[in-house]
């Protein structure tokens, strides 16, 4: 059975978890550190290709365990939503509207920067979403993964997997420490539609506002479910067309041709 064949991975996961949880959380100025982050970093060191501790196959298995285990995370998240439904209903407009921020925020911040840095149509694939699996499928269907758009979405997918969660945790922790936006609003912001990114950013927010844990979990969970359920449709019919249009506009503003001669190795 696969489970027994890969005992090494599970043993590492257990050891990392116990070690990370024993360290506990710290706050220093704008920086918030907590077990989840150590766990990701320790795992990353163990899987560092140069060290040859894990084989490619074992890493792929770890990735499969990750997506299966997501079920437990979603259960825990869902269980936090049920009792808070009356509370969430008072904020239904906010819950609906903030999705606009999730679906267009990637483009608003990412696309101008990408075009400024000289990216070609790769910029469309890279910035129209946070590039999780359904987003890759959409680009693959429309442009193929060999296209500039396809290379863009794959590059963003890899970056998101490698440092997306850690970056969002650091960012969410810093923004929460600034105490400008309400913690419930931050919690909804954390619901980006990717389990590990959501968990990491929500972890930071809870570390800053431990007393509001129950509500933060409910808001983040509700926003995350909306992002992942609506995600595929909104990405296809709203985010992608907006990204394509905005790219054309920006490229023209910068005096570039619609199809700049970017060689394949770009992005």
């Amino acid at each position: 059975m696969d489970l027994l064949k890969n005992w090494k991975i599970h043993l590492f996961a257990l050891a990392i978890t116990v070690a990370s949880e024993s360290i506990g959380s710290f706050k220093y100025k704008l920086l918030v550190l907590f077990p989840m982050l150590y766990a990701m970093l320790m795992g990353g060191i163990i899987s560092w290709p140069r060290l040859n501790i894990l084989s490619e196959k074992q890493m792929q298995y770890a990735s499969r365990v990750l997506s299966t285990m997501m079920i437990l995370l979603l259960v825990k998240l869902g269980l936090g939503i049920g009792p808070q439904i009356p509370h969430l209903m008072q904020a239904k407009t906010a819950l609906l509207l903030q999705e606009v921020g999730h679906f267009l925020g990637t483009i608003m911040l990412g696309l101008p920067l990408a075009v400024m840095l000289g990216m070609g149509r790769e910029a469309i694939g890279a910035t129209y979403s946070v590039a999780r699996e359904p987003n890759i499928a959409i680009i693959s269907e429309k442009y193929g993964l060999d296209s500039p758009e396809g290379r863009g979405v794959m590059a963003m997918y890899i970056c998101g997997t490698v440092f997306g969660s850690v970056w969002l945790a650091v960012l969410a922790g810093a923004v929460a420490q600034l105490d400008i936006l309400h913690p419930f609003a931050l919690a909804m912001g954390a619901g980006v539609g990717s389990g590990s990114m959501m968990a990491a950013s929500m972890g930071s927010i809870i570390a800053v506002y431990p007393d509001l844990k129950v509500q933060i979990e409910a808001y983040a969970g509700a926003a995350n479910i909306m992002s992942s359920v609506l995600g595929i449709w909104v990405a296809l019919f709203l985010s992608l067309p907006v990204a394509v249009k905005t790219y054309g506009l920006l490229a023209r503003l910068m005096g570039r041709k619609e199809e700049p001669a970017q060689p394949a190795k770009e992005a």
């Binding site: 996961a13 978890t17 990701m40 163990i46 995370l73 590990s196």
Partner: peptide, 14 residues
């Protein structure tokens, strides 16, 4: 979430 991210870390090498 902590074990979940441990597996995410263990998968990152690929």
């Amino acid at each position: 979430a902590t074990p979940l991210l441990a597996y995410a870390g263990l998968a990152v090498g690929k």
